[in-house]
């Protein structure tokens, strides 16, 4: 196999390992739209990164974090519901990003690769980002795992039992921001949320504990990335959408398997 295939495989699996457990919490806490919003701000991050002459990942992480903080602040007011706020932020960030990009002279970026991912062009440096950032995210998630699970079940009960609810929530949002920045290259900003959601949803059919669901989601995500990449190489389909198609196929199989098993009983 060619080197670029290996890099794609290693990078894709690396991202899947982190995004699975984190995605479980996104599913449990009903934060899918939050993930969408953060990823839509990525273009703005890339544009700002170009303006300030820093790597795109740095721009993306910064903008994602700013947006997460902004959202926490905005949620203090009660007139608008969370999903309305997210809708406003999500689309304004996307549009602002696209508009800003056209103003940057001499910048030639391949928009499609950011929108839909560019798995097969992963560089060694990208791998450092994925494993560095992903490693930090995974360690962070392990550290807050128990309190976060506790407050996902009942926030007030967790607080009475001594969980620093505000901090844990903030750390969790920052971890999502980090992982989105890291995973951008794999499936692209428009499809990242699918990798946060589809593998955990698939894992749910087989899991009996939260932890089982988390590691199953990692494995299922890795399989989806591998299958998607094979498909992309064979049929010359775009990498990001191929990965998502593979993930959805696994989900469908799991769904039918569960339905059939229930029918047989």
């Amino acid at each position: 196999m060619d080197d670029f295939v290996w890099r794609a495989l290693i990078g894709g699996v690396g991202v899947s390992l982190v995004i699975g457990p984190l995605g479980c919490f996104v599913v449990w806490r009903r934060m899918a739209y939050f993930g969408d919003t953060l990823s839509h701000s990525a273009l703005l991050g890339i544009a700002l990164g170009a303006l300030l002459n820093v790597r795109p990942q740095v721009g993306i992480i910064s903008v994602c974090i700013l947006l997460a903080l902004l959202l926490v602040g905005l949620q203090q007011q009660r007139q608008l519901a969370s999903d309305t706020l997210l809708g406003i932020l999500s689309h304004s960030a996307l549009s602002l990003g696209l508009v800003t990009l056209t103003f940057i002279e001499g910048l030639r970026i391949d928009l499609t690769s950011y929108l839909f991912g560019d798995l097969l062009s992963i560089t060694v440096q990208d791998l450092y980002w994925i494993y560095g950032g992903g490693g930090i995210a995974l360690i962070g998630l392990l550290k807050i795992w128990k309190p976060l699970l506790s407050m996902t079940i009942h926030e007030e009960l967790a607080k009475v039992e001594g969980v620093a609810v505000g901090w844990v929530r903030l750390v969790f949002m920052l971890l999502i921001a980090l992982v989105i920045a890291v995973a951008m290259k794999i499936v692209g900003m428009l499809l990242i949320t699918s990798m946060l959601i589809i593998p955990p949803a698939t894992a749910r059919y087989f899991a009996h504990t939260p932890e089982q669901m988390a590691w199953l989601a990692s494995i299922i995500g890795s399989i989806a990335v591998t299958l998607g990449m094979v498909m992309s190489l064979h049929f010359d389909t775009p990498a990001g959408p191929s990965v998502v198609v593979a993930a959805v196929s696994l989900f469908t199989v799991a769904l039918f398997w569960t339905v059939l098993r229930a029918g047989n009983r």
Binding site: R30, A201, A207
Partner: peptide, 26 residues
Amino acid sequence: IGYMPQKLHIDAVLPLTVARFLALSG
């Protein structure tokens, strides 16, 4: 303080046994 809330609703998407729930008390 031990607290028993008025209601506790857990979504089916979270696989959680009674044992695990109790273990979360620490």
